[in-house]
Design a protein around this nucleic acid. Structure first.
Lengths: 117, 117
DNA sequence: CCAGCATTCTACCGACAGGTTAATTAACCG
DNA sequence: CGGTTAATTAACCTGTCGGTAGAATGCTGG
């Protein structure tokens, strides 16, 4: 894995188990065993996934007696939104051209990929 | 790599080389050698990265004589934006609570260095 | 102090990612 | 046809990932 934070964030999100954990944490804090409950996976396995999320800064843990309360951290997701914002114009443009594209999709030949405007 | 499309998208984006390729393609089409030029990496290496992006649906290629014109495809990035939209409320909420959070940040915790307002 | 619970650490495994070089395909041009 | 260019495929190496099992750590409550 790379060392840059954005790569760590993307890599952490490239796993459905970890995304499910995040989705659960978006509804509120939870302990490790609570988070592990929905999965047919050993507890150390879930703990490893949490570690990945933690290293990526997506999740933080507070010690509470023998429990760890896991919490979703917003910063990396905001950085991701910022990264995605760079492509916003492109996405909107291609969205506007979607109708034209679909209309021109009659023959499987050269579609209107002309960006000369 | 998982088989679900979102995981493939995240995994494809979890590499700075591939993100740089995408950023380049956001400015317009390019051939493989053009894309490879900025990197100190062998051509097959770049070709492999492109293959990952292509399998994830982020890039498509058109044959043009002996060249392949690579093009950025918007659909996966839009799916990513949709996924991120789910966390929008959480991000906005925690953004609103940021001041309170920073005030309560007496204990030596990792400062969420988001000073973006 | 001891028993028990929550969690992590260590060690290990198979599979895959990321990179290389060498060989191959495919198209152009003379 | 033969040579050149563009790009991929093949084979290989190394490191990391996702998962397991088992031991260790740390806290709580009697």
């Amino acid at each position: 894995m790379q060392t840059d934070p954005l790569s760590a964030t993307f890599a952490a999100l490239a796993d459905p188990t970890r995304r499910a954990i995040l989705a659960r944490l978006a509804t509120g804090e939870a302990t490790v065993t609570e988070l592990a409950a929905p999965f047919s996976m050993s507890l150390p396995g879930v703990s490893k996934h949490l570690k990945v999320l933690e290293v990526a800064g997506l999740v933080s843990k507070d010690r509470d007696a023998q429990w760890r309360r896991c919490r979703l951290e917003p910063a990396p997701l905001r950085d991701l939104a910022t990264w995605l914002e760079f492509y916003r114009r492109f996405l909107d443009e291609s969205f506007d051209r979607l109708d034209d594209y679909l209309n021109a999709l009659q023959q499987p030949k050269e579609p209107t990929d002309d960006r000369s405007r």
